[in-house]
Design a protein around this nucleic acid. Structure first.
Length: 730
DNA sequence: AGCACGCCGACT
DNA sequence: GTCGGCGTGCTC
C-alpha cells in the first residue's frame, strides 16, 4: 500500500502538497520530518505534517518525495499542531512558521553559484553579448570560483538575475551549481549563550494566603493550563512573576519568558542569571548564528530551566513547558509584520494551550483589547494601581513658534542653573518642516513612495522616511515652477536649533535615527549626557529603546497629540503608551519634574498618562471604541494588497471585494482604498478593512477568498490574545 | 518565493 | 527578424 505525505514548504504559500512516500523511506517519513521534494521545476526542502494511506483527489498528479532528511521528527507532534493553529489564525504560511522554529544547523541552505564557461569568456571578449549579459559575464570573469545570484543582482543594479542566468546557462555561457551550504557549528566561546546549569535552588512550598495570584498558582500546582493577564505597578508585578517562575521551575517544569525587542537584553540576561542561577538561555535578534546555535544546543541538552527571548523565542524548544510569561504585553514588537505575520502574544496563549501550560501576559499599561477580554473571561489578575504619577505639568501650547513655550523655557533655565540635565522628546526626526510651494501649495513627495518628503536642514535635503531616499532641495516647484518655501517644524533638528538660540553656550545633543546612527556614537553621546557634559538632549522615542538609556531630572514631551492624528483606531492607545514610556525616563530623585507641552491637554490619553492613571485612560478609550464599533467591541482585520502594476492591483482588488462580499451579510467590507501610504518603494498598496461581530465570519471569508488572489498580500488582525479562551483553564 | 511561458517594444 | 524586459500563473 502506498503512503502519502502531506508537505508544507517555507514559502509564502498557504497550501499543503501531497507526495508519494518511496518504499525505502517509509520508516522515516513521519510528521515533523524534513524532506526534499520536487516542486515544479525545482527541488525544495519542506516539512511533513501528516502521513496518510488516503490517496488525494484525481485532479492532482502525485510525485514521489526525493528524500526524507530526518530519522526522527525535529519536534513533537503537539508543536506541529501549535504552529498549524497559529498559521491558520493569522492566515500565514505554516511552512514559514516551521522554518522559524528550526535551529540554524537544521535549516537547509543551498549555495547557488554561477561560473563563466570558456564559451562565455570567448563571447565576452568578442563583444557578442547583450548589455546585461555582458555585465554579468564581466563580473564572473573576475571570479574564477563563481558568484552568487544575490551578489550579481546587487552589482548589476538590483534587477532579478535568475531568469537571465537561466538563459545564459542554456546558451552554455555560464554554469550554475547549487551545493548545500555548511551548517553553522556550535561550540563557540565558553558560555556564549549563557550555558545552562541545573538550578540548585530549593523551592519550599511556602504556605501562602490566597492572594490575587491564587488562580494562577492553583493552575500551576494542579498541572493544568490557563491564560491570564497580570496587571499592576512594576514592582509587585515583578515579584508576582518571580513567584510564579519559581513555582513552575520548582515543580520541574520549564518556563518560556518573552520580552519586548526594546528591552535591554544584555542587562536582562544578567538579571536572569542573578535571580535564577545560571539556568537561563536567552534568545534575541542581535545574536549571531553561532550564538543561536549554542543556545539551541543548551536547550537540547535539557538542563535549561528558563528560556527567555524576544518574539521569535516563541518557537524555542523548551522541553516540558509549564509557564509562558509575556512581559510588557502592550508592546508592538510582539507583532511580526513580515511574512510569516503573527502576534507572539496570541502565540503564547496558543502554545501554552497546546502544551497544557499556563500563559501569563503582564503589563503596567496593557492594551485595551487584552484588558477588556481578560476581564470578560475572568482572566484578569489585578495587583492594584499604585501611587499616581506626580510632578508632571501639562502646558497648553498650540503654536509651532516658538517650539519651546515660555513655561518650559523657564523650567529648563532653572534646571540648568541647578546643574541638572534635561531630555526633550519630539516625535519627528529631521527638521520636520512644512515644505511647500509658495505659489501653488504643492508639497514635494517621494517619487517612489507617495509620501511627503521631510526637510532635513542640517544636510539641506528632503528625505523620504519610508525608503530613506534623499533629494536635494530644489528651488523650483515641480508643478508650477514657483519657489519652494520652508516653514519650520517641530522635528529634532528644529528643536535643537531653538535650544541653541535659547541657551547659547550650552551644549546640546540630538538622539535620533539620523544623528545617532551607529551603536558607537550612540553610546558616546549617552555617556556624555550622563556625565553632564551635554546637559540638553533632544530625542525621539528611539532613546527609550536603548539598552542603557539615561534618566533625566527634567523630561519634556513635545506635541504628543501628533500621534492622535494617525488614521488608526489605536491612536489613543499609542499616545497613552508613548507618553507614559517617555515620562518613565524621568529620574527617581525627588524634585525631578516633567512637562507635557501639547495642543490637546484635555484629551484623556494625554491627561491620563500625565497622571499615571491607566484606569482613567481605559475608561476613555473603551467608551470611544464602543461608540465606534472598534475592537474589543468588534473584530477587525486589515488586508493589504501590493503590486507594481496599479491596473492589475485595481482589478484584483475588485475581484477580492466581490469574493469577500459574497461571504455573507454578517461581514462588513470597507474598501478597496489606497492604504495610508499608497506606495512604498514603487509598490502600490491597496487595503481593505473587514469588520464583524464574530471573528469566525472574518476567517471564513478570508479562507474562501485569499487563495484565489494571486498577489502579494498581508493580513493583520485586531489584537485579541484571549479570544476563544473559554473555558479559561484549558 | 522561484521559475516558465508568452506578449510586446527596440536593436544587431 | 530576435533579444530581453515584464506581467501572469503554477507548483502535489
Amino acid at each position: 500500500m502506498t503512503l502519502f505525505a502531506q508537505v508544507v514548504f517555507p514559502l509564502p504559500l498557504d497550501q499543503v502538497f501531497t507526495y508519494a512516500v518511496p518504499e525505502a523511506s517509509r520508516d522515516k517519513a513521519r510528521p515533523g520530518a524534513r524532506v526534499l521534494a520536487p516542486l515544479g521545476p525545482r527541488r525544495e526542502k519542506g516539512f511533513i505534517v501528516e502521513v496518510t494511506a488516503e490517496p488525494p483527489g484525481a485532479s492532482i498528479k502525485v510525485k514521489p518525495l526525493l528524500e526524507v532528511l530526518d530519522d526522527r521528527p525535529f519536534r513533537e507532534e503537539r508543536f506541529l499542531e501549535f504552529t498549524r493553529r497559529l498559521a491558520a489564525e493569522f492566515h500565514c504560511s505554516w511552512g514559514e512558521l516551521l522554518q522559524a522554529s528550526l535551529p540554524p544547523s537544521l535549516t537547509l541552505r543551498t549555495k547557488t553559484s554561477a561560473v563563466l564557461t570558456g564559451l562565455g569568456r570567448e563571447r565576452l571578449e568578442a563583444k557578442g553579448l547583450g548589455p546585461r549579459e555582458r555585465a554579468v559575464a564581466a563580473l564572473l570573469a573576475e571570479a574564477p570560483k563563481g558568484r552568487s545570484p544575490v551578489f550579481l543582482r546587487r552589482k548589476t543594479g538590483g534587477k532579478d538575475v535568475s531568469g537571465l542566468l537561466g538563459r545564459m546557462e542554456k546558451k552554455g555561457l555560464v554554469r550554475v551549481t547549487a551545493a548545500p551550504a555548511p551548517a553553522p557549528r556550535g561550540g563557540g566561546g565558553p558560555d556564549a549563550a549563557g550555558r545552562p546549569v541545573q538550578l540548585g535552588l530549593a523551592f519550599p512550598e511556602a504556605a501562602r494566603e490566597a492572594g490575587p495570584l491564587a488562580p494562577v498558582e492553583a493552575a500551576l500546582a494542579g498541572g493544568r493550563g490557563g491564560a491570564f493577564l497580570l496587571v499592576g505597578p512594576e514592582e509587585p508585578r515583578r515579584a508576582a512573576v518571580r513567584t510564579l517562575v519559581r513555582q513552575a521551575v520548582g515543580a520541574g517544569g520549564r518556563v518560556l519568558w518573552l520580552f519586548p525587542e526594546v528591552a535591554p537584553t544584555a542587562g536582562l540576561a544578567a538579571e536572569f542569571k542573578e535571580a535564577y542561577g545560571r539556568a537561563a538561555v536567552v534568545f534575541h535578534g542581535r545574536m549571531t548564528e553561532k550564538q543561536k546555535e549554542d543556545a539551541w544546543r543548551a536547550l537540547r541538552s535539557g538542563r535549561a530551566g528558563l528560556v527567555a527571548g524576544t518574539r521569535s523565542a516563541l518557537f524555542a524548544e523548551t522541553g516540558p513547558l509549564r509557564l509562558v510569561v509575556v512581559d510588557g504585553e502592550q508592546d508592538d514588537s510582539y507583532v511580526q509584520a513580515e511574512s510569516p505575520g503573527y502576534d507572539a502574544r496570541r502565540g503564547a496563549v496558543l502554545r501554552a494551550r497546546s502544551e497544557g501550560a499556563v500563559a501569563v501576559l503582564t503589563s503596567s499599561r496593557p492594551t485595551v483589547e487584552a484588558f477588556a477580554e481578560a476581564a470578560r473571561a475572568g482572566a484578569l489578575i489585578d495587583l492594584g494601581s499604585g501611587p499616581p504619577r506626580d510632578g508632571v505639568t501639562v502646558v497648553e501650547h498650540a503654536r509651532d513658534v516658538p517650539l519651546v513655550s515660555a513655561e518650559l523655557g523657564r523650567r529648563l533655565r532653572a534646571n540648568l542653573a541647578r546643574g541638572g540635565s534635561a531630555i526633550l522628546f519630539t516625535n519627528r526626526r529631521g527638521y520636520a518642516a512644512q515644505v511647500a510651494c509658495a505659489g501653488c501649495g504643492t508639497v514635494p513627495r517621494c517619487p517612489r513612495c507617495d509620501i511627503a518628503l521631510v526637510y532635513h536642514k542640517a544636510e539641506g535635503r528632503l528625505v523620504c522616511h519610508y525608503c530613506n531616499e534623499a533629494v536635494e532641495v530644489s528651488r523650483a516647484c515641480a508643478a508650477c515652477g514657483g519657489g519652494i518655501a520652508v516653514r519650520r517644524g517641530a522635528g529634532t533638528q528644529a528643536v535643537e536649533e531653538e535650544l541653541g538660540r535659547l541657551f547659547p553656550g550650552v551644549r546640546t545633543g540630538r538622539f535620533d535615527a539620523d544623528a545617532a546612527g551607529d551603536p558607537e556614537s550612540r553610546r558616546k553621546l549617552l555617556a556624555e549626557f550622563g556625565r553632564g557634559r551635554v546637559p540638553l538632549l533632544v530625542a525621539t522615542r528611539l532613546l527609550v529603546h536603548q539598552p542603557d538609556a539615561p534618566k533625566a531630572g527634567l523630561v519634556a514631551v513635545l506635541r504628543p497629540e501628533a500621534i492622535l492624528g494617525f488614521s488608526d483606531y489605536r491612536a489613543g492607545q499609542k499616545t497613552f503608551e508613548t507618553v507614559s514610556a517617555l515620562l518613565d525616563v524621568r529620574s527617581d530623585e525627588s524634585g525631578a519634574e516633567a512637562v507635557i507641552q501639547t495642543a490637546a491637554p484635555a484629551h484623556f490619553s494625554i491627561a491620563a498618562a500625565a497622571a499615571g492613571d491607566f484606569r482613567a485612560f481605559y475608561e476613555g478609550e473603551a467608551a470611544f471604541r464602543r461608540v465606534m464599533g472598534y475592537p474589543p467591541f468588534a473584530h477587525l482585520a486589515e488586508v493589504v494588497l501590493q503590486g507594481r502594476d496599479v491596473r492589475a492591483l485595481g482589478r484584483r482588488s475588485r475581484e477580492l471585494r466581490a469574493l469577500l462580499q459574497g461571504a455573507g451579510p454578517e461581514l462588513e467590507v470597507l474598501g478597496p482604498a489606497f492604504a495610508p501610504v499608497a506606495r512604498i518603494k514603487d509598490l502600490s498598496r491597496v487595503q481593505f478593512v473587514l469588520k464583524a461581530a464574530e471573528r469566525a465570519a472574518i476567517d471564513r471569508a478570508l479562507d474562501a477568498s485569499l487563495p484565489k488572489i494571486p498577489l502579494r498580500k498581508t493580513v493583520t488582525f485586531s489584537y485579541s490574545p484571549f479570544d476563544g479562551v473559554k473555558p479559561l483553564i484549558f
